[in-house]
Design a protein around this nucleic acid. Structure first.
Lengths: 354, 354
DNA sequence: AAAATTCTGAGGCACGTACGTCAAAGACCG
DNA sequence: CGGTCTTTGACGTACGTGCCTCAGAATTTT
């Protein structure tokens, strides 16, 4: 059996309450007493029983996802997974929710963060563009005792907060290699479309893509990024123009997480089956195109994993534990028609039509 | 606050002990009393607090992975991740271990399973080839109260036990598509190598691969499977012979989880850079080849995920909960050089040599 | 002696369980 | 047939699990 606080108290020659004060770093204990307790902890190899502790203090964890107000299918999928996690985590007294309050103005984001009440919230997972104002507001939030996870957007390795998401340069590079290999040595231009290039993610993906294409696939020319700004009309106009002016477009890469508008426009003004088309993120829409061959590959991060990971990291921080690195490492997934998850069922139906 | 057993007792007009008996399905309670308690549970929306229950019971979970005696790098990686999980799960009173006792003889496997003592073990994750004897032994184990997860090998949808692993037909199909696309329309033969074709996994991968190649890439000819039987000499001999007799081998697909022998032999008797080579599972070895270009793609299942998933499923079964399907769904990962996990660091080094 | 510091005791969190109680149902005898 | 004894089913009591917390006691310090 593992040693308990009782054992500690006996070994250190103090009462349970004193042990508890040392354990939780509260004041009112002499240096020597603290040392005695710590020695006992060391000697007995004491590890506190977190569930017993949480039971005793009636602890609950209250976490919120702060999401962009904008968003299309990818955001929908995210929210669906938050909803799923809500139920799964409820049993462990983790209260999960989300709010769509994040705009594009850094000051507005900072204001949202400033209004968070540490008494009603233990942690937030923030999906917001990078900006100095946001970084500062994040730091202040941390100082007020609210844990923060940079979620999907943002960058790894910032001291203020953990990052949960993929390395977007590597994701772009992955897209680049698939593009290169799928084009099979042909020479031509690659159309590149994004919702906006103001987001760090898109920039990084573009960098990664260009790096690999330039180094390993010199026969391909990556065109300048077209920005749809989430406007279907505009998307179609600029994409049509691109196909008209460049003769030999043999592939298209849609950088942004919301790919629908761009992909619809591409399908409208050209033949998607004759190009290599790559997009990001799995949604109803991208999945359907992948299945019917209009999309050749999707680079994705698993939304369920993202969300559970953010919650686990927040919890670990609340408990002053270190998260399990290998579990919280979000993989860059490559999705083809065959590894979407129900390939066998599909072919079974094809072979035994009901 | 969530309702407690105390609230239940009051609402149902019985004592805590009776509530407990109903909750844990023990005998000695009249039908009407049971109904009364159940009504109260319904009405109050009672959910029992598992950690409090486990605390009171002093419950621990004892799970073991039963692994093949044979195995090379993939098995090493698996074991390393079990070791990691051991530590991570210890805090939640889950005792994780493994034993390498599984041979290829179904009777031997059945004997191993028969010797498991339900008093010392709550669940096992079994990585074993499929066989009627094994299935029966699994059923008997379940009847003796030990939970079983079919791990990596085995098939989904068997009533006896949950399955944690990927759909190998889909994995093979994924390999098939990548092979087809990466070959870029060239005509030629594809070498196919496996350790053995006695394992269900290899068979299924081959089926999936063939299905996709036959349907979508008719210019490719998938050669008959060569079996190395884990013998380096033999591997080199048969592979050399294949390259000698078939003129136009433009790709190679190594089906089995342990790919090293086959890949070494291929590199010895041909130029790996001039073919499309695809293998399964991420190991030190496959990773290195991926980085230096000798391997074009790796189809993998994430070992850390596999192991945590198996443990979570076992735990859920012990607690009579339903596992979270989306979390326990193991993805078929496609690994290229760029999405191995440290691509940015790598290119940073290239740009800023130290 | 008052104030500040350090420490203890007892009760509580949500639940499990050994043991005890109590009534009804038989069993047995004269 | 009544009366006593035992068995059985149905339920309650009280304490334990590892830890936290608050009121208050004991010890210093001022």
């Amino acid at each position: 059996m593992r040693p308990t606080t009782k054992d500690l108290a006996k070994a250190a020659g103090v009462s349970l309450a004193t042990v508890d004060r040392v354990l939780n770093g509260r004041a009112g204990v002499r240096r020597e007493t603290v040392a005695a307790v710590n020695d006992a902890i060391e000697k007995l190899g004491f590890v506190r029983n977190l569930s017993a502790a949480n039971l005793a203090r009636g602890r609950t964890y209250r976490f919120r996802f702060l999401l962009p107000k904008s968003g299309d299918l990818f955001m929908d999928s995210m929210i669906a997974h938050i909803e799923e996690a809500r139920h799964a985590f409820a049993a462990e007294f983790v209260d999960v929710g989300y709010r769509r309050e994040i705009g594009s103005d850094p000051h507005q984001i900072a204001r949202v963060l400033a209004q968070i009440d540490p008494d009603t919230l233990d942690g937030v997972a923030l999906m917001a563009p990078e900006a100095p104002q946001v970084r500062d507001a994040t730091s202040r939030l941390r100082e007020r005792g609210v844990h923060v996870v940079q979620f999907v957007s943002g960058q790894p390795g910032v001291r203020e907060a953990d990052f949960v998401g993929v390395d977007n340069r590597a994701a772009g590079a992955t897209a680049g290699r698939i593009m290169g290999r799928f084009c099979g040595g042909r020479t031509g231009a690659i159309l590149i479309v994004s919702e906006t290039m103001n987001a760090r993610d898109s920039l990084e993906r573009r960098h990664g893509f260009d790096f690999v294409v330039a180094r390993d696939f010199p026969m391909l020319t990556a065109l300048p990024t077209l920005e749809t700004h989430g406007d279907a009309e505009r998307a179609r106009a600029i994409i049509a123009k691109a196909y008209a002016t460049h003769g030999a477009i043999i592939g298209a890469y849609v950088l942004s997480s919301e790919a629908r508008l761009a992909l619809e426009a591409i399908a409208d003004v050209s033949d998607p089956l004759k190009q290599v088309i790559i997009a990001h993120e799995r949604t109803r829409f991208s999945e359907a195109l992948l299945r019917n061959g209009q999309l050749d590959a999707v680079i994705a991060q698993n939304p369920g994993h993202l969300i559970r990971s953010a919650l686990r990291v927040l919890r670990a921080r609340c408990d002053e534990r270190e998260p399990i690195a290998s579990q919280e490492d979000i993989r860059i997934e490559i999705l083809l028609r065959e590894n979407l998850g129900d390939w066998s069922e599909e072919t079974d139906r094809a072979r035994h039509p009901s």
